[in-house]
Structure formats: C-alpha cells, structure tokens
Design a protein around this nucleic acid. Structure first.
Lengths: 204, 204
DNA sequence: TCGATACGCAACCGTCGCGTTTCATAATGC
DNA sequence: GCATTATGAAACGCGACGGTTGCGTATCGA
C-alpha cells in the first residue's frame, strides 16, 4: 500500500515484529473519533494515540501523516451491501433505501458522511477513497436493480438509470438531512419515495 | 440581537463610538474565510482579525466567542430568491434548479453549504440559522411553484409537495455532489431532472 | 545469549490560537 | 480642554498539539 510506511514486503523481519493489535486499535480509535464527529482537521495524533492506548511513536512509525492514517482507516470500512434479489424492483428499491435510511440514523455513519462531504475539497484523496469504498459499490448495486427492472419490463426501456438513482438516493438524503417535519420521517419513508418515483419510471 | 455584546440600545454614547466599518470588515472577512473552505473549527479570531485589518480587541469587544460571530455573519447572507412566475411548472422548476446548480458551481456557496451540513452536529445554532436563512426561503418558493401547478391542473392533485421537493432538490444535489461522469453534468441537467420527475407528477 | 526492532511512556521544543492586558492614538460629548 | 470610550498593535501567560528523542522493556531470529 502506497501510503504505508515501509516494513511491508522485503525488509526481513530482524527484530520484534510490529504489533498487529496496536495497529488495529489505532485504526479503531481513529474511526471511533471520526464517528463521534471529530473532523479530520481536528483529529490529533495525540488524541488517537491516547484513545488507542498507544504511544505516538507507534503511530508515526507506521504513517507519516494524519491523512495517510485516515485513508487507511477508511479502507477498513467494509460497507455491507445488502443482496437485493427481491421479486420486484419495488421491493428491492425499498429494501435498499431502507438500508440507507437506517445507516444514516446512526451518528457514526452520519459523521463519516459529513467528513466525506465537507473535507472533500481539502482532502481529495480521502474523498476518492470514500467514494471508492462506500459510494461506488452502492451505486453498482442500485444500478443493477434498475437494469433488472428494465429487462423484466417493470421499468421504461429508455429510463436513464443514472437519473433514476439520483432521484431515489437524492430524495432519501434530502429527507434525512433537511427534513423538518417529523411526519416526513415516518417509517414508510422508503416506501413513499419509491412509490412516488416509480410512477415516472414505469412503462406507460 | 441576543448574540451581540451590549452597547446597542441604552448605554449612552459617552466616548468614541464603535466603528461601523470595522464591524463590516470583520463580518466580511469571516464570510470570505468560510467561502475559502475554512471550517468553523479552523476559523481563528486571529486570522479573522488580520484579514479584516482589525485588532483582536475589536472583535472580542463585540462578540464573546467564535460561534456568535459566525452566526451574525451568516445572518448577513441574503440569498437571492429568483421570482418564479413562468408560464408553466416545468419552466419554473427548471429555472429554480438552474439557480441551485449555478450556485453550487461556486466554491463560495459550496463551502458555506459544507459548513452548514458538516458542522450541524456540533453547532446546532449555526445549522438552525443557515436553515432559516438559506433553506426555508427556497423551500417556500419551490412549494409555491408546485402548489400553483396543482391548482392549474398541471400536477396531480394528490401530489405530496414535500416529496416532490425532495425528489427534485435531492436529485440536483446528488448530481452536483457525487456525479462522476461529466455527461451527467451537461448544461441541460436541470431540464432532464425536471422532465424525468414530472413524468410521475403529472395527472395521468 | 545477543543483536535488532518494536513497544508504551515521558520529556522535549516549536508553533499556534486563545483571551487578556497594556499602550499610544483617534473620535466623540460636555 | 477634558473625560470617556474605541481603535490597532503588540505582548502576555496558557494550553493544545506536532514531531522527535531517549528510556527501560518486550519479542523476535540467529
């Protein structure tokens, strides 16, 4: 991994090997802090070290700067992509949006998203990583659902898949971010979004 | 203004009055820095003072902390809401989304939005202010357009206005934030979003 | 056993921002 | 003129953090 500090391949293990546990707890602490709403610029190596029960040295030995560490930390995020094999496009989309909604309920996810969005200007590498790990896989899943729907004849053959994804995902994000009336966040939100959107997506 | 440091009403002007110019340049500098992508947590009074050509004292005399200052700065934002009196819902919506799109092209707007979104967890007052000044007026305009459309019979009478707004605005935000293919950001983006969305919004 | 490397910890220096104070100066009312 | 208040500039002590170094210890291969 480019961002890592040497001691990966060659190097010959001559002395005490690096503690796998230390590394894990460092990354864990980093993700925890991020999950608690600490912005990248506010993350301090000292804070991470103390949270991880680790010396600063141990961190600097592995990563030469904060951004490298955060990039590696994000890498460990394995977003669970739900398998969508329902009977209909409607079922799959509702299941998908429900997952998105549940995720964005948790502060952890929200903070990570915030970082991805707000620090994207100043930390393009972070943004790229986040996109690669979190956004793209979901896009792929959703695109596949929509394509299947087109094949099955549930959706218009000329449907712009990208546009459809933007409408569905955008509507959900908008609601979870800016909704002001509790009524808009009812449990059937995903269902209502999908039903409204599908009106225009189905063949006429 | 609650957040302001006294010397507003009573107090009797006994000595040298506070410089109106200094106050303006402080707020201006604050907005400039925010516009350049500096997060609230990274904003420093010193930085603002030096940018504004002002002593720190002058700032502390007026605001007791950073957040108060930023709140006041945001207050001066007067988002221009375009008058939407087109011939059709389609025209109005396209005009509206085009404005949103143009705004989000400019780094200034993007950064302010970033702050509003990412700092909303830690600075609820900021988020509330931003919502009041930037979000709500736009929501109102768009809701009015949609309601007019319903009255005119251009839109389904049972259309959920909130949902429609979420779909339209969400789709545009999603595109401008996460779009990866240049093709998705073509000049006719607003038009394409509106046309796709309206398919489901019109009476059948 | 020995050399090498990693470990946690503490100390270190340099930088930066905060919030305060002091200073000479400028603008106002009496 | 005189008292009063504001101004920009500079400096203060303080704490947080970065990044480095040394210490004593732990864990590896040879």
């Amino acid at each position: 991994m480019m961002t890592r500090q040497m001691a990966e391949g060659a190097a010959r293990a001559a002395g005490r090997p690096r503690s796998e546990k230390a590394e894990k707890s460092i990354i864990e602490a980093t993700l925890e802090l991020i999950g608690e709403g600490v912005a990248v610029s506010e993350l301090s190596i000292e804070g991470i070290a103390s949270r991880a029960g680790v010396g600063k040295t141990t961190i600097y030995r592995r990563w030469s700067n904060k951004e490298d560490l955060v990039v590696d930390a994000l890498t460990t995020l394995k977003p669970p992509i739900p398998p969508l094999e329902g009977d209909s496009v409607r079922d799959d989309l509702i299941a998908y949006l429900t997952v998105i909604r549940e995720e964005s309920r948790h502060t952890h996810t929200r903070c990570i998203m915030n970082i991805a969005m707000s620090d994207s200007e100043r930390h393009p590498r972070l943004a790229a990583r986040f996109d690669e790990l979190a956004i793209q896989p979901r896009r792929a899943v959703m695109a596949e659902v929509l394509r299947r729907g087109i094949e099955r004849g549930e959706l218009r053959p000329d449907l712009d898949v990208e546009m459809a994804m933007a409408i569905l995902t955008g509507a959900m994000l908008w609601h979870t971010k800016w909704s002001h009336r509790a009524a808009d966040l009812r449990d059937d939100l995903a269902e209502r979004i999908v039903d409204e959107a599908l009106r225009g997506f189905r063949p006429r």
